[in-house]
């Protein structure tokens, strides 16, 4: 369910989540994960599920733009936008 969290909390949660699949997330906030080939395609699917379930936002088909999901900071911006805060 959606819970109120700050942008920093979203960032930490996304980093912790991706840290399950990538060896080191330190300093990776702006690295292109999908276009850079760092995320396996199944993990990219799981990332979208995670965003929906954890932050209570819905990813619609028009949201399917690489720009929304390619890096930790882009995901944070996407979640903020979807939650109507940015």
């Amino acid at each position: 369910m959606a819970v109120e969290v700050s942008a920093d909390q979203v960032r930490d949660a996304v980093k912790a989540y991706l840290g399950r699949f990538l060896d080191d997330m330190d300093g990776m906030e702006d690295v292109d994960l999908i276009s850079g080939g760092l995320l396996d395609s199944l993990v990219a699917v799981q990332l979208i599920d995670f965003i929906q379930n954890r932050f209570g936002v819905t990813v619609d088909d028009e949201d399917l733009e690489i720009a929304n999901f390619d890096s930790v900071n882009r995901v944070v911006a996407f979640v903020e936008r979807k939650r109507g805060r940015a």
Binding site: S41, L42, A44, L64, E65, I66
Partner: peptide
């Protein structure tokens, strides 16, 4: 959307 078929649709 293009760029997502193999992951979000196919995967």
């Amino acid at each position: 959307r293009p760029g997502f078929a193999l992951t979000q649709i196919g995967g």
